[in-house]
């Protein structure tokens, strides 16, 4: 464990908690893409199956359980409890265009052709593009609530910190995982446009609105 991976995990946890609290306290999921949240639940489910087979540390196990629990709770709040506030008309990204290619690629490019490894690879590739429905929805509505931009900021920051973690581990431990690194770079690049808007607008107290 290094400081970059730890702050990355805490940033990820912060994003997940911010979103869950935003929906729970405002009793509304307006502006939130339910499709992205379903994809994140798929990412955690396919990646953390090793909860059943391997014990790495209390930290590792507890964080995985928290991530899975919060992501399913968020999906439940969006599609069940606060379904009336779900903005389905703007959450129209065709997720099959993400899941099918990602599924195919995880069979073609992986470290080991075993079920657990292919599912892990699928989750890595899927996480790289899982935010697209949310970014697409914001481009359609033309704006995002400030709390949603903070959620996106911490979510994007977490994988950017992981990139630094991988540089650190390569240098100090000789460890690297090309699949995770390439997917992580793609994932972080997808946030660049948002990061620019977040820094130039939201951090200056303005609302995040796109066409302007």
């Amino acid at each position: 464990m290094n400081i970059f991976r730890l702050t990355g995990d805490l940033s990820h946890l912060a994003a997940i908690i911010i979103l869950l609290l935003k929906i729970w306290k405002s009793r509304s999921c307006a502006g939130i893409s339910g499709k992205s949240q379903i994809l994140f639940a798929m990412v955690f489910t396919t990646r953390y199956l090793d909860l059943l087979t391997a014990y790495i540390s209390l930290y590792n196990t507890s964080m995985k359980i928290i991530y899975i629990g919060c992501s399913y709770a968020t999906v439940y709040l969006i599609y069940a409890k606060f379904k009336a506030t779900y903005d389905g008309n703007h959450d129209t990204f065709r997720v099959e265009f993400l899941v099918v290619p990602v599924g195919g690629l995880s069979f073609l490019v992986n470290h080991d052709f075993s079920p657990l490894e292919i599912l892990w690879t699928f989750s890595i590739y899927l996480e790289a593009v899982a935010i697209l429905p949310q970014l697409f929805m914001i481009s359609k509505t033309g704006e995002a609530e400030t709390i949603t931009t903070h959620y996106l900021f911490f979510l994007g920051l977490y994988r950017a910190l992981y990139l630094i973690n991988w540089v650190w581990r390569f240098y100090f431990e000789g460890f690297f995982d090309m699949i995770a690194i390439v997917a992580g770079v793609v994932q972080t690049i997808l946030y660049c446009d948002f990061f620019y808007l977040y820094v130039t607008k939201v951090l200056k107290g303005k609302k995040l609105s796109l066409p302007a």
Partner: peptide, 10 residues
């Protein structure tokens, strides 16, 4: 460098 396969990252 060796590519350790133990998945210890989240």
């Amino acid at each position: 460098p060796v590519k350790k396969k133990r998945k210890d990252e989240l």
